[in-house]
């Protein structure tokens, strides 16, 4: 279950923040999380931010995967993994 979309905080007003998803702006309650600031990405579920997105982890996941796959590909057929 649990649809939730990464949204960028653009304004904070006590426990309510305005968040942006590619030009769609709406209000979200931030009372379930600590230390948010403007510019942070939060995961919003049913009108509540339930966590911050860890940017470093996000990038690392993709990079790790790319490098592992690229390595495998080179091993397999001598080509670079990037299409």
């Amino acid at each position: 279950m649990c649809l939730a979309v990464p949204s960028k905080i653009i304004e904070i007003n006590d426990t309510v923040a305005r968040v942006d998803v590619d030009g769609v702006i709406r209000e979200t309650c931030i009372m379930l999380i600590d230390d948010v600031k403007i510019g942070d990405y939060v995961i919003v579920h049913a009108g509540f931010a339930i966590n911050k997105v860890d940017e470093e982890a996000a990038l690392k996941t993709l990079e790790d995967m790319r490098s592992i796959l690229a390595m495998e590909d080179r091993k397999a057929d001598g080509l670079s993994g990037h299409p």
Binding site: V5, P6, K8, V21, D22, Y41, V53, A58, L62, M65, R66, L69, E72, D73, G81, H82, P83
Partner: peptide
Amino acid sequence: MSLKYIDEYRDAGLARQLVKKI
């Protein structure tokens, strides 16, 4: 279109590589 933290995890090239690996 750009949905941060969504689009990059829908990268068709990377997905196809993952499928190959699977």
